[in-house]
Amino acid sequence: MSHTTLDKPAPAPPSAPVARRRAVSGASSRGRVVAILFSAPALALLAVFLIFPFVSAIVLSFTNQRLASPLPVEFTGLENYQRIFTDGQFWRSFGNNTLFAAIVVPVQTAAALALAVLVNRQLRMRLFFRTVYFLPTVTVMAVASVVWKVLLLPDSGLVNGVLGTLSFGNLQPGWLSSTSWAMPAIVLTSVWQGVGFQMVIFLAGLQAIPASLYEAARVDGANAWQQFRHVTLPGLRNTLVFVINVTAIFAFRLFDQVYLMPQFPGGPTDATRTMMLQLLQTGYTRRMIGQASAIAVVFFLFVLAVTLVQRRLGREERTVR
């Protein structure tokens, strides 16, 4: 084997430009074959698990395909889309998704940034704190949901115990059984579980900012806030754009928490119903795969639009610099 690796084409002598060009074009076509070969496994997997299901979802969204039924499948045109768009429950879930993202994206990003700045300092036991803040991310969301469900129990839960002591028993929300507190409970759980991941990304970003910039700023007489505002933030711009993007996409995929935490998935009275839950229940509980596929397509287009807008905004920030 070692013999073949030595068998590389020798660099062409500079005095023969024509031969050299031919060698290059030969190498590049061979390179293309190699590239295709190397990417083939990934491409095949992408095709089987991403492109094929996606195309199939688009096709199914124009039919009345059911989960399991002896009745024949029929082409129904745009009826599935028409039903979705006239369905109050779908709009409710769409609204909940948007509300959730609107709260979680800024809160989680800010919290992650704060934590990252905190554990980036020369604190004692900072490794310990880094680990502690990152731990929830390692926890499976389903487990986190169940744990928080117990913590948020109205009468015996830890959260209400603390709140009760702090507010002298005045603030005792029913959390998951109350239409106004259920969403905040979901937000709390999600931020707690998700913040560690963003913190680590921010931490990497922080460590890439040269210490000399801070030294220079200090020499110029900048205080801590000015250093953060004019050194840290600009240095983190690309990280920030990435984190916001990813958090937004995760936020729209909200499912585990709203499925597991309220007594009725998406409850109470649809206060935490999301598009993913709507999709699952349409497809499985109501057994309408066609209509569920239509929801999937709408969801995809929506997330795509949000991502494109965010990328555009992110890029503009960069050109300003």
């Binding site: 492109i51 094929f52 195309v55 199939s56 096709v59 199914l60 395909q65 499948v73």
Partner: peptide
């Protein structure tokens, strides 16, 4: 073609 294949399979 891909779409037809998809539908064919599920049908």
């Amino acid at each position: 073609i891909a779409a037809c294949a998809a539908l064919g399979l599920t049908a």
